[in-house]
Design a binder for these strands. Structure first.
Lengths: 217, 217
DNA sequence: CCTAACTTGTGAAGTTGTTCACAATTTAAA
DNA sequence: TTTAAATTGTGAACAACTTCACAAGTTAGG
């Protein structure tokens, strides 16, 4: 939980800010100059109060009677989220998932620049992916420092993940996105997000398995 | 929200069940026969009460004074989540993300069998990935039915995603995992999970941008 | 300039999710 | 067999999150 001028901001609110940011782009493209909390809410299946409350944590962006200025609000949210600047990103593990990430167009668009790629496979080290050379993971800590990497994406097998994370943390990087299907430990000052596709699938199977109870219970 | 014998189960609880399931595998491998809620909690950075409450929604699995039987609990959770059986899965879109998913070993292990692959690119249609033929997406609805597909993974560009989802829903599939960076609409009886890696990155940048406030505010 | 229609921002109320606290039960040791 | 230590299961208390409801401000039309 983060505090902004004494208010607690939940991860849910942060997530919705990202949704608003994307939606405002759509509205911009559709030619809207202002938008009401009701419009935003309808398109995201939220309540207008939720939208207003989320934004209210960060300031007053709207005009009563009129709504929010689309372009300006989008810019403000970009600043809040921190995507009004470029970020130096490194990728560890250039297997299936890593390769997909290097080619992921959304990343470039959003200012996430993958500057370095690492792997421990000698056959991959020295090769290039989208113009980026693959380095030996033994040089991880040193190179993260040298290139001022701020975010590391970990896409290595589960067994290797904690070791990589430890090196990343030791290098002073405070933000990690992991695709390893493992529980990872980081100090409290480091932000870690874990994506696990198998767990996402299990949400689906839970609902498929139990939805009948939803109606019959 | 799902109800089991009148109790409401949150998505957070479902998520934690997946974590317990994986942790119990580790404990099994480490040779434990029983485990306490405290042990489970410590390893997942949760409270023992949280663990016990989560499990209590589904029954009484422990023995007072002793804890939970590792192997048996794992099996019970598998049944609750619905991963004690094989699921027929189809993948739509065999680009970077789709290719990574086809090769994702966790899926096979968990009983998620990708039976069909679809794409709209004539150069890809007819080719094989991990032994699975790529079909023309125009045959999507018909083939989902024919092969009794229960879960569809959507890994197509944002602009195409809603169209694909509509076909999938029309085919009677009730569970969708999407990697498209778009807002998708599904009827309420369909479960949709959306993964958006750019949004995950934005959680990180939010924290990197605002964590100073955490300490100074 | 006045009024009607809108819409924000926010304290308060309501809802959902987490943690507490303890009775009930089991085990193990004396 | 008794007692001490451990641990579950769960109602109640607490905390976090969402929605309500309305005062305050803005716009547009007459």
């Amino acid at each position: 939980m983060v505090r902004i001028t004494g208010k607690r901001i939940s991860e849910s609110t942060i997530h919705r800010l990202s949704l608003y940011y994307r939606l405002l782009k759509v509205l911009q493209d559709e030619g809207y100059e202002t938008v009401s909390s009701k419009d935003l809410a309808d398109r995201e299946k939220l309540t207008p109060a939720q939208v207003r409350k989320d934004l209210s944590f960060f300031g007053q962006f709207g005009t009563r009677g009129l709504g929010y200025p689309v372009t300006e609000l989008r810019q403000q949210i970009a600043e809040i989220i921190g995507i009004n600047k470029k970020w130096n990103v490194a990728l560890v593990g250039i297997g299936n998932v890593g390769s997909a990430l290097v080619s992921y167009k959304e990343f470039q668009k959003q200012g996430f620049h993958i500057k370095l790629i690492f792997d421990n496979d000698q056959r991959k080290i020295g090769s290039f992916h989208k113009g980026i050379e693959v380095h030996d993971v033994v040089n991880l800590r040193q190179m993260l420092n040298k290139y001022n990497i701020e975010i590391v994406i970990v896409a290595v097998p589960g067994a290797a993940a904690q070791g990589v994370v430890n090196e990343v943390v030791a290098a002073g990087v405070n933000a990690i996105l992991s695709f390893a299907p493992t529980n990872l430990r980081v100090p409290s000052h480091v932000t870690l997000r874990s994506e696990n596709m198998a767990i996402e699938m299990e949400h689906l199977t839970f609902h498929l398995t139990n939805e009948n109870l939803y109606y019959t219970a």
